[in-house]
Design a binder for these strands. Structure first.
Lengths: 245, 245
DNA sequence: CGATAATGTGTTTAATTTACACATCTAATA
DNA sequence: TATTAGATGTGTAAATTAAACACATTATCG
């Protein structure tokens, strides 16, 4: 019998046996970290919290918690969001799991990173002191332990994802102008886009509903307001295709 | 003090305190499942193993194991691969983590799914009995517990990923003809492609090295053999861009 | 040596992306 | 109320990319 013969350890075992094996190997703590993006003052921001470890009180971290034994992984991420923001219909998606041995000084912790996109206006933070704040992503230097690495991974994920999936609208008010939408994309992608081509692109997708309203209180000609038509999108969304490295 | 004040549980704690918290919440077992794709006889295949649970002995499953406490998550996936295939320079990438409460009857198990692409010719399986075998993905009906869901997720991942990243070559011999490459893409994407446009596309990418050799033992005019130029690709690979839903 | 079956190649057309300029509208100001 | 400032709103030409499509070439097999 070769080593290739093990599946979850030996061969031909009972469910009961596996149960005790599972029991005995619960040596790894599982946590969730949420990278929560917001968009305010034409800047992309991320929600950070001051570490509640005394030793690292000058360092910021992502919002996270250990996963509860009786809690779905996704539910765990939702719970963390809810505690912090007051929730609504948040966009939440799992991105990556970080599981290096030495990544957490308190022991073996494996962390599943989730990204959330929320509208800063609609979700006033429950606590507005130093503990919790929106941080511009440009000036993000250091985070607790490997959290910067997690953030970087999620930011790259966002840059890619926002180009092939309509996430971005979760960062905007329900009704938004095309200028706001373009500002958002420019902030996320960190580059200037041609205004005319940007409009053409979105209009040709045909997922924007003209609300027949205009911006209020802008010191210039107000732009039209639109909503994203999620229903239509779900019907007509394209399957990604085209080989291109 | 609001509920928003908890980070990893209370506030202002010590590393030592967190340590014991981590200790006490190790109630979740962590495992890795590998979805190992192969390509043989112009069919896309997946490596399956017969469940070693007596009760489920008629059901196949993915290759997996519990993550060891002192083992990096990625290393765990490599270990599983190595045990089964004899390894070499395998392509391995994390895809998604599955963490619903009821997904495993032996208790709370969270599973990180990895995808691997291997060349069936180069990696003769260590065990060739019923336990371990290549299964055509077309005729894949049912797998143990939620493994079919995991497989489906990984297959969709592969279909998308193979179009924007040069993974596919890991499924082919070092030297391959363009016909083999096209067969591979047709098998993965499950659709016919235009031969001339396919060639044009890959030649224009300019990542194929003409080996100056031809296929042997084919019952027709032999095609030229190529290698993929990974070095050149790393230098010149394009950043994915272009908004398109 | 002829038949077979796959390789290898190019052009035309359509679709998409990019670059680019000017009139229009509203608010603010004089 | 007229002027200005500053943003909105729109179209076209050029370039690039993708899609459709046919025939000569070459090795093998009988």
């Amino acid at each position: 019998m070769t080593t290739a013969k093990n599946n979850t350890s030996g061969s031909a075992k009972t469910l009961k046996g596996l149960q005790s094996e599972v029991e005995s190997t619960k040596r790894i703590a599982l946590s969730v970290d949420c990278v929560i993006f917001g968009f305010d003052e034409n800047k992309l921001k991320v929600l950070l919290i001051r570490s509640d470890l005394k030793k690292y009180h000058d360092t910021f971290s992502l919002l996270g918690d250990l996963v509860k034994p009786e809690e779905d992984l996704d539910a765990s991420a939702y719970r963390i969001l809810k505690q912090r923001t007051g929730l609504n219909d948040l966009y939440l998606e799992q991105v990556h799991t970080f599981g290096e041995v030495g990544r957490h000084p308190a022991g073996r912790v494996v962390t599943v990173a989730y990204c959330s996109l929320i509208n800063v206006q609609h979700h006033k933070l429950k606590s507005l002191d130093n503990e919790l704040h929106w941080h511009e992503i440009d000036s993000l230097k250091e985070l607790l332990f490997d959290r910067k690495k997690i953030f970087d991974h999620c930011y790259l994920w966002l840059q890619k994802r926002v180009q092939e999936h309509p996430l971005g609208f979760s960062l905007l008010p329900n009704k938004f102008s095309l200028r706001e939408l373009q500002n958002l994309y420019e902030a996320i992608l960190d580059k200037k886009l041609d205004r005319r081509n940007f409009r053409k692109k979105f209009f040709s997708m045909d997922f924007l509903i003209d609300m027949g309203e205009e911006e209020q209180n802008v010191p210039h000609r107000p732009g039209k307001l639109y909503k994203f038509d999620y229903e239509k999108y779900e019907m007509k969304k394209k399957k990604w295709q085209g080989i291109d490295f």
